[in-house]
Design a protein around this nucleic acid. Sequence first.
DNA 1: AATTTATGTCAGCCATATTGACTTATTTCT
DNA 2: AGAAATAAGTCAATATGGCTGACATAAATT
Lengths: 194, 194
Amino acid sequence: MADINFVSQPAHKHASTEAGGSTPPKGVSGPVPYDLIELLFFAYREFTSDPDDVLAQYGFGRAHHRVLHFVDRHPGIMVTDLLGILKITKQSLGRVLKQLVDEDFIEQRPGAVDRRQRLLHTTSKGHDLARRLALLQTERLDRAINDLPNDSTDAVKQFLFQMIDPEARSEVANLINVRHDETGTSSDKTSSAP
Amino acid sequence: MADINFVSQPAHKHASTEAGGSTPPKGVSGPVPYDLIELLFFAYREFTSDPDDVLAQYGFGRAHHRVLHFVDRHPGIMVTDLLGILKITKQSLGRVLKQLVDEDFIEQRPGAVDRRQRLLHTTSKGHDLARRLALLQTERLDRAINDLPNDSTDAVKQFLFQMIDPEARSEVANLINVRHDETGTSSDKTSSAP
DNA sequence: AATTTATGTCAGCCATATTGACTTATTTCT
DNA sequence: AGAAATAAGTCAATATGGCTGACATAAATT
C-alpha cells in the first residue's frame, strides 16, 4: 500500500539569506517544511479537480461550485451571509449567482420576516448537482483517510482547523458544525448538539 | 486550548436525490464529510493569504509565487519541467516568468549540455522573497501542527499525499523530496528523527 | 537533410476577482 | 413621521491568470 517516508530535513544552499549576509535571528526559525507546503498545493489542486471537470460540462466554474455548495449546506442563507463566507464582493457573487438562478439551480425567496432579503435555496436540480460534486470529493477524501494510521482523522481536521487564524476559528467552527434549520435569521446560528 | 468537537455528520433533508430522482445508489455512499470539505477550503484560503499580501506589495500574484517557489526549490529547472509541475500552458507561465525575470527575481542560463534550454534560477533577490513567503507559510503551518496530538504530523502528510491520484503520487513524491516506497514494505512510518 | 524538441511570442478569449458609484426596497432608530 | 441604516442589485471599468491557435527560432536527434 504505497507507503512513504517523509524525509525530515531538506536543505538549501543558496547564496544570500542563510550564508553570506547577516542572518538576523528572527525567532530561530526552524527548517521550512517544504514538503507540507507543496503537499498542500498538490492536494488542494487534486481536491478541486474532479468537481471542476463536472462543472465544466454545465458551463460552470469553481465559483459556481462554492456558491452552490454553501447554499446547499445552508438553505435559506441570506446573500450578505454568503458574501461573508466566501469573502468576495457582491458583484462577483452576483454574476455567478445570477447564472445559477437563471438556470434553475438556485432559487430566491423573499424573507418572511424581513422582506428585503432574498433567501437562497438550492432547487432539486441544484441540490443534485451539489450532492454529486460533494460525493466526488467524498470519494477522494475517503481514499485519503481510509488507510491512515489508526484514527488520525481528528488530527487531520484539527490541523486544517488550526490553519485558520485563531480569531476566525470560532466563526468557521460554527459554520461547519451547524445543522442548519431554516430560520432565515442572519446572525445567531448557534449550533450545538440537538 | 481552542479545541473543537467535530460533530460527526449531519444529514440532509432535501427533496430529490435520495428519494424521487434518478441517481442510482453508487455503493452505499456513507455520509458526506462536509466538515473536511469545508475545512480544506478555509484552510487553503488562509494558507495562501499571507503570501498574497506580501506579493501584492511587489505587484505580483499567486501565479508568481508558484513559479518563484518551484524555481527556488529546483534551481536550474528547465521550463518544460516547470510547466509539468504547475500544469499550466507555456503562455501562462511566460507572462509571469517574464515579469520575474525582468524584475530580477529569476534568471535564465542556457543549458551547458543542451543549449536550447533556459535553465531557471532565483537571484538572491528572488531567493530572499521566496524564503520570506515560505517563512510566512511555515509560521502558519507550525502553529497548526504544534499543538496537535502527539506528532500526528506524519498522518497529516500522509493524508495530503493520499489526496493525490495514486498514479500521480510517485511523481509528486519525487518532487517534494520524499522517499516513496512502492513495495508495500511498511518500514517505519513513524520516526523521522535523525 | 528532415524532424523533433525547447523555448518564446503574438493575438485574442474567458472566468473570476476587484473598485467605485448609484438605485430600490424595506427596516430600524430617534 | 422622518432620517438613517441595511439588504440587495446594477453599471462600468480594471486586473489577474487561465486558455487556444498559430507561428518562429535555435539546437538536438534521427
